[in-house]
Write a protein that binds this DNA or RNA. Structure first.
Lengths: 222, 222
DNA sequence: GGATCAGGTTGACATCGTCAACCTGACGGT
DNA sequence: ACCGTCAGGTTGACGATGTCAACCTGATCC
């Protein structure tokens, strides 16, 4: 199983190999504790300290492995298109959630542990761009950065709870849960920003008023 | 620094002492990696394996330490009262967020790592109870369990991002962020559940319609 | 006054991340 | 043809950590 030494100039080949087996190991075990430098090195057919030739330490390796997933996420969000900006927002939110749930370990390592990297920046920017479109189209009002972080929080909360609390008695199917959280975030952001902090109808009158208001939002013409 | 041995029948005293110093250590360092059995034992004035007399291992100790915080959280949510059920929902959501941000390490350990315990069950039940009140009062519609999980997701997402990504360029003050996420969750849940999955006005007409609809929700009488 | 047993301690083991020192074989210059 | 050089590794060790089996000890009861 011993790996043959690379020729001069090809040292980076080992780096790729290490990343590959580390990703494998992480996917197999589902936890970064099981990602030992010794296990990674052994599977790559190489001695343990060789990892240090390409990564400054264990944390650096883990980060490098997980960061690869985020490029894919940005790509899959970019692919989630729709002509209507508000619909595109929902599509991208769902793409985000779908990807996170498909790569739970990487998502957890990068976004559910304290860190100062900005792994999600690219994805957030894609979200932000779509929120801007919605503001221009008049369906959302307010500062796009603030609106986007609030919606991000909702979707992140949804997937991170699903990842971290598999034992919780979730009352709806995962797909429905994600979809409904996305809808809640979208409509909630649109409505909350249009209402004053105080002076909204008191609860007994708010229920019927919401019924009536929502009827006017439905397209009866088609 | 050596602790005097407890008398027969008082063995549980050490358990309390261990919990106390472990909590101290966790609060000081902010990370459970620094919570070594050796450090805990040393600070308690006791030998390392003594911890095993009261906890089955490191994970059990960490869980026991963090679980103590949740009882306090449930209490502080119970204290967040308001006559109006919809307002009470917001108060409790904010109490939840405030507590989580005040005990970030415990929150992270229990809710942001994979686990099968149901740490948050008691808090969720308090949330659920208030959601039920809102449904009875007519301001929310739908199945309370589903509504509550969606709102929980939003608030959890908000605090867990704040805890895990302190380096992110948050565009609003933490208090405002929390408040606005809570508003988004409340109004979003109320509205999204009243709208059909399809057949909502297309974006160009949705903006003005939302403006008009939200005007009807404002209390102009006072 | 000796047995008992709760409440610990001692010493060791395997595993981990990390590092300094060493090895080795391909390649360029002469 | 030979020899230095240097990229690309390896060896062996260190200290820290979770965990466990075996041992100790002093209060209490008959």
């Amino acid at each position: 199983m011993r790996r043959v030494r690379a020729n001069p100039g090809e040292g980076a080949l080992l780096r790729g190999e290490i990343l590959r087996v580390a990703e494998e190991l992480l996917a197999e075990t589902g936890t970064e504790q099981a990602l030992t430098l010794r296990a990674v090195a052994a599977r790559a057919g190489v001695s343990t300290p060789s990892v240090y030739l390409h990564f400054s330490g264990k944390e650096a390796l883990i980060e490098a492995v997980c960061l690869r997933a985020w490029d894919e996420l940005a790509e899959s969000m970019r692919l989630a298109r729709a002509d209507d900006p508000f619909a595109r927002l929902a599509r991208r939110g769902q793409a985000y959630a779908r990807f996170a749930l498909a790569h739970p370990t990487q998502y957890r390592v990068l976004l559910m542990r304290p860190a100062d990297h900005r792994a999600a920046q690219a994805c957030f920017d894609l979200m932000l761009e779509t929120v801007r479109d919605c503001v221009e189209a008049g369906v959302l009002t307010g500062e796009p950065e603030k609106l986007a972080t609030r919606m991000w929080a909702a979707i992140h909360g949804c997937v991170s709870l699903l990842i971290a609390q598999p034992g919780f008695p979730w009352p709806e199917e995962i797909d429905d849960f994600v979809t409904n959280v996305v809808r809640m975030a979208g409509f909630g952001t649109a409505v909350a920003e249009r209402l004053p902090r105080r002076g909204v109808l008191p609860t007994p009158r708010l229920g019927p008023a919401l019924d009536a208001a929502c009827r006017t939002l439905t397209d009866h013409d088609r």
